[in-house]
């Protein structure tokens, strides 16, 4: 198993230990762990790390992986430049 000091979320530099601490404080969902640690709140929005978080949550609580809900998805799927127009309407 991975070392506790390993960085789970590279964007926000969150270690496995911090994730475990959040679970011990009562976080029992991926969303709650995110709020305690900022895991998955960086540029990649958790694309690589939140699977790891779910796995750690499963190990720590004994909840099977299939019962762990993924994070609430927040648009956009990929970062979008502010200069890109989203609606068809012309700017005045």
């Amino acid at each position: 198993m991975i070392d506790n000091e390993v960085i789970i979320c590279r964007c926000e530099e969150v270690t496995k230990e911090e994730v475990i601490k959040a679970i011990r404080r009562g976080a029992n969902t991926v969303n709650a762990i995110k709020r305690w640690t900022r895991v998955g709140m960086g540029l990649c929005q958790g694309k690589s790390c939140l699977q790891w978080v779910a796995k750690i949550l499963s190990e720590e609580t004994g909840k099977p992986m299939k019962n762990i809900k993924p994070q609430t998805s927040r648009p956009p799927i990929r970062p979008i430049k502010f200069s890109v127009r989203l609606t068809e309407e012309e700017d005045r």
């Binding site: 540029l43 929005q45 927040r74 648009p75 956009p76 970062p79 979008i80 430049k81 502010f82 200069s83």
Partner: peptide, 10 residues
């Protein structure tokens, strides 16, 4: 801000 990138909305 025109050069910024939007990463999350909620």
């Amino acid at each position: 801000l025109k050069n910024a990138t939007m990463v999350r909305t909620w």
